[in-house]
Design a protein around this nucleic acid. Structure first.
Lengths: 231, 231
DNA sequence: TAACCTACCAAACACTTGTTAGGGAACCGA
DNA sequence: TCGGTTCCCTAACAAGTGTTTGGTAGGTTA
């Protein structure tokens, strides 16, 4: 996950650039390479956005640096003025997404809701996150599995663990309190709910017929009450 | 493993090779390249199996031909005795899976079940397919989106369309007959059911605690009746 | 005007990629 | 024994890969 939920970071406020050796991720940069810190973070975000789109559409490995540069209207080498590697572009995309995700999740988890309300809030928050970081979520889904093995992306595995703890814990609380059925395998239920929510990123398109909240409402209705008619 | 590893050799029965120009998919081989038809289809299947595993684990693009060959105990060039390209390996994996999938689906759809029973049968059949073709399903999920744009893999798009027709039709039938709720967006429900089932391939491991049938039972219970306790 | 910084280009580098061509060992039926 | 087939190896190829180096137009500051 991401360390202390650095959450907001430094958007807008003091232009104080992060000290050397400090990454937006908090994982210390043991690397000797001086990270190229662009003076205009806007251009950076712009490039990250187009890179994320291309990554999401064609997959990380199938995406060439030249393709990203092309989409951004520049040449491949020029990208290295802003980033020091293709991998660090991916890194920034994913960690920015996870930072924001956990900011939202932590707020929900700290609110002291009951199990059912917590699940509802988590699902809703998730769809909002999909709405905002569609590309990043798609990338995460495709690549996180084999990325998390890599030391640089260990925070993906950490995040997933924290994720499981939050959801599984809530579900177990719900079973104990009588809100959720006790005749189901909780781990299976967890994966069921988790997948149902996040796979939506593969077909969701912002600005579509349904708002994130509306989708969340219907998804919750299905997950909680089922699609069959009650007799 | 290593060279001599011819291992089992050919404990095969009839070496009857399929007629030329005929693909297991039915899509005519318009290609001019003479497809290398190995005399022992078992070795072929063996190689397809290991290739599928590597593809599933690391993604198609991230997988090098040398890696596949290595895993199979031979050198990269040797693969081209059995297949004429990396792409056609992928092609065979996917189409073999889809062939078997549709054999099962068509049987279910032709059985004349009611909507609810049809859904139950389709879900169960799907988990059986995941059990048998775990790797192929994982590959399909990761790559089908951008592959279906390619002419060679058009059958992926065709399959998906047929897929949607079958599931969506059954759901609509169920709503009309009063078996399923009518206050939900049917398309959303379709994607919901479809995704929940197939994403399971990403975590499912054959030989685990639950049999495909048991997983199907629990999934169906959740999808149909929900995870909340009824009052 | 001079010095400097930002954001890019142009051209190359080293390496990996999928693929091919030729050869050879083991086994087969005749 | 011989020719043929099967299955793999050796060695290379061309194209594409991420990345680096040096340069430079344009703006800002002094």
């Amino acid at each position: 996950m991401i360390p202390g939920g650095r959450s907001t970071g430094d958007d807008g406020t003091a232009p104080g650039r992060p000290g050397p050796g400090q990454d937006q991720n908090g994982h210390v940069a043991t690397t000797k390479k001086k990270t190229q810190v662009s003076a205009s973070p806007e251009r950076r975000r712009e490039l990250l956005g187009t890179a994320a789109e291309v990554f999401a559409a064609h997959g990380y490995n199938a995406t060439t640096v030249r393709r990203i540069a092309d989409e951004a209207g520049m040449l491949a080498g020029s990208l290295y003025y802003h980033f020091d590697s293709k991998e660090s572009i991916l890194d920034e995309i994913l960690s920015a997404f996870l930072d924001e995700l956990w900011a939202g999740y932590d707020a929900v988890l700290a609110a002291g809701f009951g199990p059912r309300e917590t699940i509802e809030a988590l699902v809703t928050e998730s769809f909002r996150e999909i709405d905002r970081h569609r590309a990043a979520v798609a990338i995460y889904q495709k690549e996180s599995r084999h990325l998390s093995a890599q030391p640089r992306f260990r925070y993906l595995a950490d995040s997933q663990q924290k994720f499981e703890k939050a959801w599984l814990g809530t579900l177990e609380r719900g079973v104990a309190s009588g809100a959720f059925r006790d005749d189901l395998d909780v781990r299976l239920t967890y994966r069921f709910v988790r997948d149902t929510v996040w796979v939506a990123a593969s077909w969701y398109r912002p600005g579509g017929r349904h708002s994130p909240e509306e989708i969340a409402r219907q998804y919750l209705s299905m997950v909680l009450d089922g699609i069959a008619v009650r007799d």
